[in-house]
Design a protein around this nucleic acid. Structure first.
Length: 86
DNA sequence: ATTGAGCGT
């Protein structure tokens, strides 16, 4: 399951998000879409969890949670375009 | 070093 995360503090890192989601379920992978080429960081990321049950639980528990002074926006991610999956 | 709505190679 892929989860979309927004409103991420720039001080946060993938390891921090991994631990935040790991307390509600098993985190398979974490990716933060921060653009270092431009002077504008995206500030959002994606978390892949084991299944939807832990995913939705993590969403309900981490959605709107204050982290480093910011409230994380957690929701289900959109189906990403993939050439293998059809 | 910097900034704040959104959906990634």
């Amino acid at each position: 399951m892929t989860i979309y995360i927004g409103n991420i503090p720039y001080s946060l890192k993938e390891a921090d998000i991994e631990q935040l989601f790991a307390e509600f379920g098993s985190v398979l992978s974490v990716k933060i879409i921060s653009d270092k080429f431009t002077h504008r960081s995206k500030g959002y990321g994606f978390v892949e969890m084991e299944n939807e049950a832990e995913g939705e639980k993590a969403i309900e528990n981490l959605n709107g949670r204050d982290v480093l002074g910011r409230n994380l926006k957690v929701s289900r991610a959109n189906p990403r375009k993939n050439k293998r999956e059809v």
